[in-house]
Design a protein around this nucleic acid. Structure first.
Lengths: 232, 232
DNA sequence: CGCTATGTTGATCCATATCAATAAGTGTGG
DNA sequence: CCACACTTATTGATATGGATCAACATAGCG
């Protein structure tokens, strides 16, 4: 593993509290690789041999059943993914592929589990991380079951707007195709949904989003901290 | 807390590995209560003051947004619920109500977090539990996004059949109303879905389910270990 | 610069929701 | 223990969100 990749990982919530010695153990066993776009890193059902960390680029988590595919999440630097499978020593429940050229750290699950058993601080960080992941999927489920696709889109745009530090013009972070799948709809339906948000002051041209009437959009979207907040 | 409730809790995966001293600390601070049916135990958004454990009866986890309500899960004895909120010291993301007369243990979140910091075995159990919860919600999401309501029902029935130790006649564990909401459909649609499973050897009379052609049902349902297994 | 993947638009179809009416349970109090 | 009230389940009719199919436009990309 390259020396200049180490600090980025060290700063992750997951690793920042652990003892230097154990961190070194983990890093020694790890390796980093740069992948081109559209490369499959993980296939659902496979044993979870590695904990992955995206350092640059982005990775899509997706699932397939009976010839249907759906996008579950997009992982952006710097964060780990499929921690639960690593800890449980179970099969991956999701597949992962790069969406662009990406650097990914691979930490052998065996080492992660071993150090998890030894370093209490690391164990606590794992718990926090898992609790966050769990709560974020619960929010996804609420989003899916309680809202229409138009409402999901509206809320997604509000969240993106907040992530863009409140800018009223910002870029979509993922392509529409993927966004549609993530939101649980077809690309055609997304296209139409975007058009039907125009009366609410939303205009999307290519990847550029412009929101001119935040109030109207919020009235439609009715965002809730119990569904839409990253933090809680 | 009554003495004869203690052993049941002690045997939970979550507590079985922890030191006796810490377990006693936890139990001392806990209290048990019996609730009638339809009592709200938890309201989403409230601070997570207690970790709950159902000892008898059953508890429904549900969510509300914008006047819509959806059933997220039914918790049966003996299991804990809303562990993630307790650990994170965050607000509940789900509400909980008894569906029948139920005994529930309430463990102050503060104590749980304190002992979590002290007892490594307990911390590891918490991690395992959270990982299980997380993976189970991921499966729910896959179920919702990748399957039609008919397919969800078919798979639910197969899972129930397995839980009933392979019996071809068994009882629905929850009322149809709740089942419909859990499966993400309306009661009317569930009624019709049940009828359209008749050609697949499924007959439901009241709460009694009879499956006569498992093969046909499986061909329709296409169950997958990565969506339907409890264990993985 | 042309090929291929992505996005848009329109027409149509289908699954599921909604509305409405009835039937069947279920629990409660007289 | 029955009658009444109330909730739940079923069934039918209709509406609608969203999917599918098809054609075309557009934009990346080699």
């Amino acid at each position: 593993m390259r020396a200049d990749d180490v600090p980025e990982i060290r700063e992750l919530d997951l690793f920042s509290g652990m003892s230097e010695a154990y961190f070194q153990d983990l890093v020694r066993a790890a390796y980093v690789q740069t992948f081109p776009p559209q490369v499959d890193l993980i296939t659902e059902g496979d044993p979870a041999d590695f904990l992955h960390v995206v350092i640059s680029g982005s990775v899509e988590l997706y699932c397939i059943w009976n010839r249907h595919e759906t996008s579950m999440a997009t992982v952006r630097p710097v964060s780990s993914f499929i921690l639960a499978a690593t800890i449980k020593d179970g099969p991956y429940l999701m597949s992962a592929r790069t969406t662009e050229k990406s650097r990914v750290v691979l930490l052998p699950s065996l080492d992660v589990r071993e150090i998890f058993d030894k370093d209490h601080n690391f164990a606590r960080a794992v718990v926090r991380e898992l609790a966050n992941c769990y709560r974020s999927v619960v929010k996804d489920t609420k989003n899916l079951k309680l809202r229409s696709s138009l409402e999901r889109l509206a809320n997604y745009l509000i969240r993106s707007h907040l992530r863009a530090e409140g800018a009223h013009v910002f870029e979509l972070a993922i392509e529409k195709r993927r966004l549609a799948s993530f939101l649980g709809m077809t690309p055609e339906n997304l296209s139409r949904a975007i058009k039907s948000l125009r009366p609410y002051g939303v205009h999307i041209d290519g990847t550029q989003v412009t929101i001119t009437d935040m109030e109207a959009l919020q009235t439609l979207a009715k965002p809730s901290p119990l569904i839409d907040d990253y933090a809680t």
